[in-house]
């Protein structure tokens, strides 16, 4: 038996909107730790890792570890039917081939339930070790989204370089080239508006903008984004989900040979 009650149901709606274009089908894993997912895009270039910790739910019952295969587009369709202020409860019985999403309006005058068919998904899980990164950039998520969108109108790839001067996003295309430099800026009114750069080593890596633009669909989840870079590793783009967990996107770099 599984029953997870999330008072801030809009978080789950935003999570689905942030990952459904990158991944079609995924297994949601439910354990005493929380509600989680790890899935790669069909090209195995990008990976999404989601964690919603059990403490973040108002009620969290998960009698035994459960993995539920879902089509994310169908799940998003159902969650779109929940109001932004609704409480969402996810329910599943042991051995059942369906999951139920229950939506309660804040005043309890409208209660809906949507039953979705589960699917068997043969997904490949990757072991991702905790790593020390050469550079970690924290910046406003809207700024990062703007940069990825702007650069993708010029080129297909972005080179992200971190030096002590700041973080530089560069692209080149048929019509020309663009460079955007963000300097560390901690003297802002609101901490979430700051750009903070922690650098151990200078880093320069190239990525497909098509994927970074997918990641920025998570912008509504968090006012800040953290970009962790090492010369020998995929980049990690992390959006924290208030008090509950995170959505992390991993993206393998492009390399020149």
């Amino acid at each position: 038996m599984l029953e997870l009650r999330l008072v801030q149901g809009s978080l789950l709606k935003k999570v689905l909107e942030s990952i459904k274009e990158l991944v079609n089908d995924a297994n949601f894993d439910c354990s005493s730790t929380g509600f989680s997912l790890q899935a790669m895009d069909s090209s195995h270039v990008a990976l999404v890792a989601l964690l919603l910790r059990s403490e973040g739910f108002e009620h969290y019952r998960c009698d035994r570890n459960l993995s539920m295969g879902m089509n994310l587009n169908n799940m998003a369709k159902m969650l779109k039917c929940a109001g932004n202020d609704d409480i969402i409860t996810i329910k599943a019985d042991d051995g059942s081939d369906t999951v139920t999403f229950m939506f309660e309006s804040p005043t309890q005058d409208k209660i809906s339930d949507f039953e979705m068919k589960l699917m068997d998904i043969d997904s490949e899980h990757l072991g991702i070790p905790e790593a020390e990164y050469d550079a970690i950039v924290r910046m406003p998520s809207a700024e990062f989204a703007r940069i990825c969108k702007d650069l993708s109108s010029i080129g297909d790839t972005v080179v992200i370089s971190v030096t002590k001067e700041g973080v530089k996003f560069s692209t080149k295309g048929d019509i020309g080239a663009a460079n955007i430099v963000c300097r560390q800026n901690t003297t802002v009114d609101k901490p979430d508006d700051a750009t903070v750069i922690e650098m151990k080593e200078p880093v320069s890596l190239q990525f497909a903008l098509r994927y970074t633009n997918f990641f920025t669909k998570a912008t509504p989840l968090s006012s800040t984004v953290t970009i962790s870079l090492s010369n020998e590793l995929p980049v990690v783009v992390e959006y924290k989900i208030a008090e509950m967990g995170y959505v992390r996107f991993y993206l393998a770099p492009k390399i020149e040979e």
């Binding site: 195995h44 899980h125 393998a252 770099p253």
Partner: peptide
């Protein structure tokens, strides 16, 4: 030439 690496070049399958 620019090549796109894939994730299993970096992380092991569990």
């Amino acid at each position: 030439q620019i090549f796109q690496k894939i994730l299993v070049d970096y992380f092991d399958s569990k």
